[in-house]
């Protein structure tokens, strides 16, 4: 991947991988109707890493659930690879905010789940699981139950499970949020290295501007509820990036400041 301006690269790539148009999401609450997302438009291109930042409760997570078909859209469309999505689509992998690991299954068997669903043969399952376990740095822990693993290791299991499904698009819902700072930095670095190698399309939700700028090609800023896009920022920091150093560069600080100002000035609730 080159350090050329992502905006130019995007137009060259043509049709977006994932395209959200006029997405609206309402649900009934306390006798009235609450709008979680309001006419939201968003494009993510093949191989692009897009971070979505916004204040708590702006509907970032809901957006991911709508894209992955777990909640129903009130209006609008989601198009993946030129096809309009209805229900739960194939080729979309969702990494949950809290790992969503099965506590009664070992790490290996948790990673096995998508393979079993896909009907992969036993021998092939074992081979893939061993591969994934080593890819996410969990060698030797395959037989452990989630309870016996640290928060960071559970994240790695969840990540391996999404990788096992081999989706074209990764949807990640504040995946590293609950970890302590040190673990978080380490797992972010590992994930970034993994991603820079495989180059999958990622839509990454976070409320942490630093994390967004560190990881993404493009940062999309959302307003407070009802959520809509209020700004987009290309991240012109060359790859591969070193997670622990990126934040000391001038480019990082300038961008971080611009995004923070956008969030604070325009993301206030209008109520």
């Amino acid at each position: 991947m080159t350090a050329a301006t992502p905006a130019a690269g995007r137009t060259a790539r043509g049709e977006p991988k994932l395209s959200v148009r006029g997405l609206r999401l309402e649900y009934a609450a306390d006798g009235g109707r609450t709008t979680a997302l309001h006419d939201l438009d968003l494009d993510v291109h093949e191989g692009e890493f897009v971070a979505l930042v916004g204040p708590s409760g702006c509907g970032k997570s809901t957006l991911l659930k709508a894209v992955s078909g777990l909640v129903e859209k009130t209006a609008g469309s989601v198009v993946l690879d030129g096809e309009r999505l209805e229900g739960v689509p194939e080729g979309v992998g969702l990494l949950f905010q809290n790992d969503a690991l099965l506590p009664w299954r070992t790490a290996e068997d948790n990673i096995r789940f998508p393979l079993a669903v896909a009907g992969v043969a036993q021998a092939e399952q074992r081979r893939r699981i061993a591969e994934l376990i080593s890819a996410v740095g969990l060698t030797g822990f395959g037989g452990h139950y989630p309870r016996q693993l640290s928060g960071g290791m559970r994240k790695r299991v969840a990540l391996a499970r999404v990788l096992a499904a081999d989706p074209g698009v990764f949807l990640m819902d504040e995946p590293f949020g609950p970890l302590d700072a040190l673990t978080r930095e380490r797992i972010s670095a590992d994930f970034l290295a993994l991603w820079e190698r495989v180059g999958k399309t990622v839509l990454f939700v976070t409320h942490d501007i630093d994390e967004a700028v560190t990881l993404a090609d493009r940062v999309v800023v959302m307003s407070a509820r009802p959520g809509r896009v209020i700004g987009e920022y290309d991240v012109d920091i060359p790859r591969p990036r070193a997670v622990e150093d990126v934040r000391f560069s001038d480019a990082f600080r300038r961008l971080r400041g611009r995004i923070a100002r956008a969030l604070h000035h325009r993301a206030e609730p209008t109520a």
């Binding site: 309402e26 006798g31 509907g59 970032k60 777990l70 909640v71 859209k73 905010q97």
Partner: peptide, 21 residues
């Protein structure tokens, strides 16, 4: 039931749900 999505009756998990176990 009021917390369910008005459309289709599928449940809408609370956005940014807390991490409490």
């Amino acid at each position: 039931p009021s917390e369910r999505l008005a459309t289709g009756g599928r449940e809408l998990a609370a956005p940014d749900a807390d991490m409490d176990d």
